[in-house]
């Protein structure tokens, strides 16, 4: 069953064609990676699929909802970690999580658990503006994970995280997928994608250039980095 599907999706910013006729399907329970060099269109695609911006052409459906027609409905059903770590500047991490669960009307939110998970207890009483980039990224991840949604869109989620937290997040995501959740991961950290993804697409100059299952890639005795270089260079 597809949880994400898009057809002929294009996005034009003035003179720049950021996405050019993208067709894509992601199945429920998949760990899907979207890889590509800088400026390839990864973030644009993620923003369209999550209802943050509109497409110029084409259609997109997420969890059975037409993204263009029901942006709020889509956002209610998904968790998003955007490219930039931008939690509200003047709220404490706890307040950010309180706000998120209030807006999403999350039942039994595990605020304490997530503060503990991301080692944010020592940050109590500090506003996000004064946190380091890595700490702010933890707040963003916690805000997405606490939403208890079945689909997560993550744009470079491991950037600025220390190796210990990276491992914790990776492990949690693997468990999340095992339990039936779906992850759409945007990254150019190929090592993480290689480790985590079931399937990956490589996007370059706004077009999907390759779509492959990691299992098949392994059978071909290739890794993502080699494939990436072959396509992009």
């Amino acid at each position: 069953m597809s949880v994400i599907s898009c057809k002929a999706l294009s996005k034009k910013y003035d003179d720049v064609l950021a996405l050019n006729g993208v067709d894509l399907n992601v199945e429920k329970g998949e760990f899907f990676g979207l890889l590509g060099p800088n400026g390839a269109g990864k973030t644009t695609l993620l923003k369209i699929l999550t209802g943050q911006i509109g497409a110029t052409e084409g259609t997109a459906e997420v969890l059975g909802l037409d993204v263009e027609k029901d942006r709020l409905g889509v956002k209610r059903k998904i968790g998003i970690v955007p490219e930039q770590e931008s939690p509200p500047s003047f709220l404490t991490p706890r307040e950010v999580l309180e706000m998120v669960v209030a807006i999403r009307e999350t039942e039994n939110p595990e605020i304490e658990w997530w503060l503990e998970f991301f080692e944010m207890k020592p940050l109590e009483g500090r506003v996000c503006r004064n946190l380091s980039r890595g700490q702010r990224q933890k707040v963003m991840l916690a805000a997405a994970f606490i939403s208890q949604t079945e689909l997560l869109f993550l744009d470079e989620p491991f950037i600025n995280l220390d190796p210990i937290v990276q491992t914790k997040v990776r492990d949690w995501l693997v468990d999340f997928v095992k339990e039936g959740g779906t992850v759409f991961l945007n990254t150019h950290m190929l090592e993480n994608a290689q480790r985590l993804c079931d399937r990956a697409a490589i996007i370059h100059e706004g077009k999907i250039q390759s779509l492959i299952s990691l299992e098949k890639l392994n059978q071909q005795k290739m890794n993502l980095e080699e494939l990436f270089r072959e396509i992009v260079l």
Binding site: K75, P82, Q84, S86, P87, P88, S89, I103, A144
Partner: peptide, 14 residues
């Protein structure tokens, strides 16, 4: 001018 509204884009908020 107090704060960037970007975080709201991750939530079901208009």
């Amino acid at each position: 001018t107090i704060d960037s509204p970007n975080f709201y884009s991750t939530l079901p908020v208009t």
